[in-house]
Amino acid sequence: MHQLLAHLQIPACVEDVFGVLASNPVAVALSPGENRLRSLLLNPGEQAVQQERGKATADFIAALRATIEDDAGNRRGVERVGELALSSQRFRDLRAQGPADRYPVPR
């Protein structure tokens, strides 16, 4: 995966709701954050360059909710939700909107 990303001349990364798993140098230069949701909510520099910030933030929060909603034992998820809930009113507002129906988790 790292080799493939390194050969791309456009920003590219592979991520899950907890963070960036791999990225190429072009992506790192544009957005050095290790967690896109955290960057979208808390990094003013990221907010300034992200044109679709509102939609991207809502999508990431829906995906996070869908990933951890039935797994209270998921330490990474609990930590991420706790950090963002304490730091971001936007996160609290979007998180409170209801169930994650946009990203159903296969059972």
Score class of each variant (00 low, 15 high):
D59W: 07
T67K: 03
G19T: 01
S88A: 12
M1R: 05
S31V: 02
G77C: 12
G54H: 15
D101A: 05
G82L: 09
V28D: 11
E79Q: 04
R95H: 11
L4K: 14
L4E: 11
N43G: 05
V20K: 07
E15N: 04
P99W: 01
I10G: 13
L37R: 02
E83W: 01
L4C: 04
N24D: 08
A72F: 11
S39M: 12
V20H: 13
P44Q: 04
G54W: 12
E79L: 09
A29I: 00
Q3N: 10
I68M: 11
A22M: 09
N35M: 00
L8M: 14
A6S: 15
A27S: 10
A63M: 11
G77P: 12
R65L: 00
H7A: 11
N43R: 01
A48V: 15
L64W: 06
D16A: 11
L86C: 15
L41F: 11
A66P: 15
Q97C: 05
P99N: 02
G45K: 05
R75H: 11
L64R: 09
A56E: 15
V81T: 08
Q47R: 13
L37P: 13
S88Y: 06
Q97P: 07
L8N: 07
Q89V: 15
D71I: 02
P32T: 01
A72R: 08
S87G: 10
F18A: 05
V81S: 05
Q47M: 09
D101M: 03
A85I: 03
N74G: 05
S39I: 06
N24Q: 08
G33V: 12
M1F: 07
G33C: 14
L5H: 04
H2R: 06
C13L: 13
V20G: 07
R80A: 15
V26L: 05
K55R: 15
P32K: 00
L84F: 10
I61A: 01
P25W: 09
A62Y: 05
Q51C: 08
D16M: 08
A100C: 07
E15G: 06
R95S: 02
M1T: 15
E34Q: 15
V78I: 14
P44S: 03
P44L: 02
T57Y: 04
R107L: 01
P32R: 00
L21P: 08
A56T: 04
F60G: 00
A100W: 05
V17N: 11
E79N: 10
A96Y: 03
C13P: 04
L21T: 13
A66T: 07
L5S: 02
A6N: 08
L37E: 03
Q97G: 10
D93Y: 09
Q97W: 02
D16G: 14
E79A: 10
I10P: 07
G73R: 13
F60C: 15
A22V: 15
M1L: 14
R102I: 08
N24Y: 08
M1D: 11
P106I: 01
E52M: 10
A58D: 11
A96R: 08
V26C: 03
A29V: 00
P25H: 02
A12Q: 09
P104F: 13
E83H: 07
K55S: 03
C13S: 13
Q89H: 09
D59V: 10
A22R: 01
G73D: 08
A48I: 04
L8A: 12
I61L: 01
Q47T: 07
P106T: 01
T67S: 12
Q89P: 05
